[in-house]
């Protein structure tokens, strides 16, 4: 259950990473289709990179003497990562709600005090997830590290692949 929720958050993050990879590369005013395409590209990259982490987890389970215990460790590690990611995602969600649903001054507040700093804190959140997974077991930390690198790689990958210059 924890692992599934973690994967869901990672894929949502990948879609946002796709948007960020595109943002700042298209100076048109009406860009909804382009934004959707960028989010989809991020999601696709996220799925590919999540597969690497899932393969890593599968390898650990196959090699484990007690696969059930190894799975419990991995799920517990995912649960600890959620300690960081659920509040992070909740704040991002609240900021997005203010940005899109509120008056423009509230939107500015959401960007200046919320979305901007949270983008900068993203690598710190991922590092915290790896550290928390390490407190459960080393194999779990390894899987989380692979997943974390994947999460952080989506944006530069999509940017270099599709948006190296202004469109």
């Amino acid at each position: 259950m924890n692992s599934a929720l973690l994967l869901l958050i990672a894929l949502a993050d990948a879609a946002f990473a796709g948007f960020r990879a595109y943002a700042g590369r298209d100076a048109r005013i009406r860009r909804r289709p382009a934004i959707r395409r960028a989010a989809l590209r991020g999601l696709t990259a996220g799925v590919a990179l999540a597969c690497v982490a899932l393969l890593c987890a599968a390898g650990i389970l196959l090699a484990a003497a007690d696969p059930d215990a190894a799975y419990r460790d991995l799920d517990a590690a995912a649960g600890r990562a959620l300690w960081v990611l659920v509040p992070y995602a909740a704040v991002v969600g609240a900021a997005l709600l203010c940005y899109f649903g509120g008056p423009f001054r509230l939107g500015t507040l959401a960007v200046v005090a919320g979305l901007g700093p949270l983008t900068m804190l993203r690598p710190v959140a991922v590092a915290a997830c790896v550290a928390l997974a390490g407190s459960v077991s080393l194999p779990a930390a390894a899987v989380m590290a692979v997943g974390g690198v994947g999460v952080l790689a989506v944006e530069p990958w999509v940017h270099r692949r599709w948006y190296p210059v202004p469109v």
Binding site: A23, G24, R25, A27, T108, V111, L115, V165, P166
Partner: peptide, 16 residues
């Protein structure tokens, strides 16, 4: 400069 201004536009958009 076109690339920098395109990035700068993102800030203008976000800051409404």
């Amino acid at each position: 400069l076109i690339a920098v201004h395109t990035e700068l536009q993102r800030l203008s958009q976000e800051l409404r």
